[in-house]
Design a protein around this nucleic acid. Structure first.
Lengths: 208, 208
DNA sequence: CAGCATCCGCTTTGATACTG
DNA sequence: CAGTATCAAAGCGGATGCTG
């Protein structure tokens, strides 16, 4: 955590979250609270000692908290503090800037279903915020995800919905393409995606 | 420029602009085009070989251009490409996040007048966009700066204005405090700032 | 002088093995 | 599960040298 020692907001920010892996840890925790091993799983490539170091640093600057759940669960849960949550616009700005580059995975790219959460919240909007809440179950990649609307907001989280209005199944990049409106459901189906349920719920989140 | 190899927008962005010093170089060029030695001056602490490396990398990924001005000027000018300019929201998001930390320089902090440009454009707004354009000359730190309005936008740049509506003189952090509305002109004066000219032009940019 | 390139010591990161 | 420990490799900072 070497400082630039510049009286400049950007430099100050980078002093805190500019180190390698730091913002990716924040990304994981923006999607939801996690345990140490979940973080390791969601950050393929990170060395375990480096994750431990980063978590200690992030805790010491007040961006995350570490809660030790007592037995019988016996586990540690990492969460963002409110100050850490305030990094959401930063992560979104970076994600939006990178979106032209997201044309498809290149050879060697790792992939996690949970990484769809941020683009979903960034690009989908509930066009009928007053209508009843909806849920779309996404079965793609290593982990089931749910897209839900709640008082006008679109949220994505890991897990399953009790009675989803639709279920999408297929490879992560393809499902993401359809969600982002870069491909229609019909095109998705032609490429190996399955969509069961009411297509209107998807339309409600995507179309202008 | 080691890649995270993750199919995720944030990771892709950090692959490109996540290296040390890279975003600070972008900051300098967001304020205005610069020569190599100007960049060195505006990035205290960077090693000259590292600057050269970063400039080559930034050019190769299409974020900056290098224009060699022929003799008798004989100089190289670095500029952001449109794609590089698109990083402005990213830099602003980071700056906004860091603003609670900008309470004052700490011991050892370097300071450049030009670094005021981004907070000025981030926090000031022209409340009377239809009125005649105004200019405030800021004499602080190592370099004169001008705050100008142009069709409703507030822009800050290095240089001098022909006939400024006001001239502010004093230490950079103090001038910045007054510009950000964290201190009044009267309080600024009491601390060693001078303000000559029409105080209404400042009011037009700051007050709600 | 502007714009680098080289060298060298130090710090950070990565890979893997190991532990309570 | 949640980390340490160890060591090699890469990156960075500072000084200095080169070239048109």
């Amino acid at each position: 955590m070497r400082s630039y020692r510049q009286y400049c907001g950007l430099a100050r920010a980078l002093d805190i979250i500019g180190d390698r892996w730091t913002l990716l840890i924040v990304r994981e925790l923006l999607i939801g609270e996690l345990r140490y091993t979940d973080l390791l799983e969601g950050l393929p490539g990170i060395a375990t000692n480096l994750l431990a170091t980063r978590l200690t640093e992030l805790e010491s600057v007040g961006l995350i908290t570490r809660e030790v759940v007592p037995p019988p669960v016996a586990s540690t849960v990492f969460r963002l503090t409110p100050r850490g949550e305030e990094l959401r616009p930063v992560v979104f700005a970076l994600g939006r800037w990178a979106s032209p580059l997201m044309t498809g995975p290149v050879r060697g790219d790792r992939l996690r279903a949970r990484w769809m959460a941020l683009p979903i919240e960034l690009y989908l909007r509930d066009r009928k915020p007053k209508a009843r809440p909806i849920a779309i179950q996404v079965m793609a990649g290593d982990e089931p995800m749910v897209i839900e609307t709640r008082n006008g907001e679109v949220r994505a989280r890991a897990g399953v919905a009790a009675k989803p209005d639709a279920v999408m199944t297929g490879p992560v990049p393809l499902v993401l393409k359809v969600l982002m409106g870069k491909a229609s459901v019909a095109q998705g189906r032609a490429s190996g995606m399955s969509f069961e349920g009411d297509q209107k719920v998807l339309k409600r989140l995507t179309s202008g």
